[in-house]
Structures are given as structure tokens and as C-alpha cells.
Design a protein around this nucleic acid. Sequence first.
DNA 1: TCAATGCAGATTGTCTGACAGCTTTTGTCG
DNA 2: CGACAAAAGCTGTCAGACAATCTGCATTGA
Lengths: 227, 227
Amino acid sequence: MQTDLQIAKQSATLRVKVEETLRQAIASGRFKPGQRLVERELCEMLGVGRTSVREALRQLEAEGIITSYPHKGPVVSTITYEEAAQLYTVRALLEGFAGQQFAEHGTAAEIATLQAAVVEFEAAAASGVGARLIKAKNVFYDCLMDGSKNAFVRQMLTSLHNRINLLRMTSMTQPGRLAHSIEEIKEIADAIKNRNGPLAAAACKFHIDQAAKVALEYLRKNTSDTP
Amino acid sequence: MQTDLQIAKQSATLRVKVEETLRQAIASGRFKPGQRLVERELCEMLGVGRTSVREALRQLEAEGIITSYPHKGPVVSTITYEEAAQLYTVRALLEGFAGQQFAEHGTAAEIATLQAAVVEFEAAAASGVGARLIKAKNVFYDCLMDGSKNAFVRQMLTSLHNRINLLRMTSMTQPGRLAHSIEEIKEIADAIKNRNGPLAAAACKFHIDQAAKVALEYLRKNTSDTP
DNA sequence: TCAATGCAGATTGTCTGACAGCTTTTGTCG
DNA sequence: CGACAAAAGCTGTCAGACAATCTGCATTGA
């Protein structure tokens, strides 16, 4: 495992590292939605040539987290209310599917891993450390996606998560939301443990729908506030 | 409309044209799965510099229709039996969703367009012209994806269609399959016309499952034949 | 004063040439 | 015949250059 990661990082081409760095920078809010990404600045900032930067940008563009306009260059993608609504809809669909597959075909070991992730998420929430919470949530979703046993679902959900990341920090920091979130996640894990496919799907869908409600409400207010 | 398209094609950057050309070349079988794509050859073939080719390749890689290995270069993606099965599964899920949305929220105009597409598909099948058939099918799916009213579903399905294209020609040329295919498509359009969401979803899922059955059977035979 | 025009700066899109590094193949020697 | 070294073929990356294009600002004309 460890060596795998190390080897992966070593043999990773420069372009991939740039990709990861930029993805991280965007996810962490270092670059904000709508902000222009000027090639030369990125080159200096990262200490690499234009080739690597441009190819990395193409990749991020394909993933949808940046948008480029011809002869104007790329900007960090913004997300409209309608897009966010659509995004959460399809996310609910796919995660519901993943949950159902997990419940019906997951191994005992996978279920154990999932439950451990829930426990860690709870602990992270109690600790109040934001970074730990995000990490725990990522572990949980990673596990859930693995449970779908479907590489395409995994890939699509990863892409959706990346695009929603800018909003997700919102939906989790809303007062009272976190406690509900924990309960919903427990429901998911329980349904999976009990091998109840439809219930697992419903629990996943419910969880996303709740998150969507909060995020969309926030988005609605903020987009009308700043015309 | 026309001017829009013309302007779009004019202002398209070279890179995008290369993308489209390569996508087409792969979809049409000009480049076969597993085949290496050597940069210099592509440059000569297309008459463009390495920059444009490499950036286009990154895009196609992100879409999954080519795969690159570090320091070895890109090859046209191959698809294993398991991957194909997963692909059809998620496609059934998404198209089922699209069909349901269409039935429940599609406009009368959209339904009329869909029905026209069905008629054209039938005519194309009767004509026996392969190209016309493929075009008709694409129109039908385009219409169906629009009906989902969800840009993400549309994008994901487009990507899946691209990746499945190499197999799709198979599943449609199987003897007897085409007649069934027409019937299934009619079922879909009927369910949508009658505003029956669940039935539309089921019809879409059934259609894909049938296509999957044929394609997977073919794939199973061919992959075990050529070790 | 204000709108239209036009120029200058900034940035992207693309090409060329170059070179190191990794893979694969070839060739040679024990 | 096998191992090891040399060579060839590509990719990954950089730097520099230049045309095309966008944008903001200044100039000009009504």
C-alpha cells in the first residue's frame, strides 16, 4: 500500500503533479470560482513550463472544474443554481445505486471498513477539526463508491464530488446540519450491514437530498444577494 | 442557427478540430482498440504541431476513449468484459432516469421530436443503409438525453456512448436484433407520450439490458477466442 | 459631453527545435 | 543460450518565437 503510493508519486509525470496541485488549490479555495487562471502565473507559481500547465488545464477542463473560453483562457468553474440542482439530482441517483449494490454484493470486509469510517467520521465531528472531518467524509465516500463495484460509477461520482466541493463545505458548516448528517450516514451503514438494498438506496438518496436542500438554499440566497 | 454553427466551427481552435477528427477516426474504426497512437504520426497525418495533438490527446484520455501509459504513449482504449458489463449497467441507470424525466417533464414539442426520430429510425432500418441507421439512432438518443433536462446526465451518457461505440455496431448487426430494437424504442416513445414515467424508465432499462446481453455475449466469445 | 474608432498591451494558440529520460530492441560477448 | 550493454524510438518537458485575438484606454469627431 505505502510503496504503491510512493511508486505512484515517483513515476507520476510532472503533468499529473500539476493537475493534482491545481485540483487541490481549487478544492481548498486557494483559487475561487470565477477567478481567471493565467498560464504564466501558474508556470511561475509551480516552476514548470507552459506545456505541462496547459496539458494539466485540459484535463481539469474535461473534468469540469475549470472552464476555458477561446482566446480568453480558463477560469475556475462557477456553478449556477440550476446546475447545482441537476448535480445533486444525478449524485443522488448514482449514490443510491452505489449504496444498493454495496448492500447486496458488498463483502463482510468492506462492510467493516465502512463502519469504521462511520465511527471515525463521528469522532472527527466531535473533535471539531475541520480537516479531519473532510478527510473522514472522503474515506466514507471512497468506501461507498468501492462498494458499487463499478468503475464508471466511481469515476462519475468522483467527478461530481470535485465539482460540488466548493458547495459542500457550505452544507456541512450550516448549524445543526452536521448532527443530521451523522444520523443519515449511520442509517446508510446500517441498511448496508443488514443487506437491505432498497433501504440503503433510499438512505443514500435521502442523505443527498438533505445536503442539496441546504446547499441550494444557501446558493439561492447568495446569488440573489450579489447581482 | 446556421450562422451559429458556422461561427462555432470557424472560431473552434485547432485543438478542438484535432479532437473531433481523432474521436471520429476512433469511432469509425480507423484506429482500432489497442492500437498505439504515435504523436509524430498523428502530427504528419493531421498537419499540425505536437502541441495541438498532445492537448487533444489529453482530452480524449479524460473522456476514456484512449489510455496513456507513462513513457509509452497513448493507445485506443480496449474494453474488458467486466468493464462492458459495468458500462451497460450504469448506462441503463442513467437512460432510465432520462426516460422517466422526459415522460414526467418533457414538453409536447420534445415528444413530437422524439416520435419523429422513432419514425426516421424505422425508415432507416428498412432502407438498410448503415450510416443512416447510426445517424437516426444518434438523433433519438440526443433527443432522449435532452429530455432528461440534466446537463450532467447528458454529458455522462455521451461519454458512455462514445466508449461503447466500438461495441454498439456489434449489437445492432446481430441477426434479428434490429427488429427487437425497433420495438423496444417504440415502447419507450409510447411510454413517454403517455406520460408514464416509471414505464418509460423500465422500457429504457429493458432496451439497454437487451443490447447489453447481445454485446456481452459477443464479447465473451471473442475474448476467449483470441488469447 | 458622449459615442465611435482605433491603437497598444496582454494573453492565448500554435509551431519549432532541443534534450533528457524511459522502454524496447538489437547486438555482442561469455 | 543467456546475460548484459549499446542503440534506437518515443515521450515528457522546456524555451523561444510569432500570429491571432481580446480588452482597456485614449483619441477623435459629432
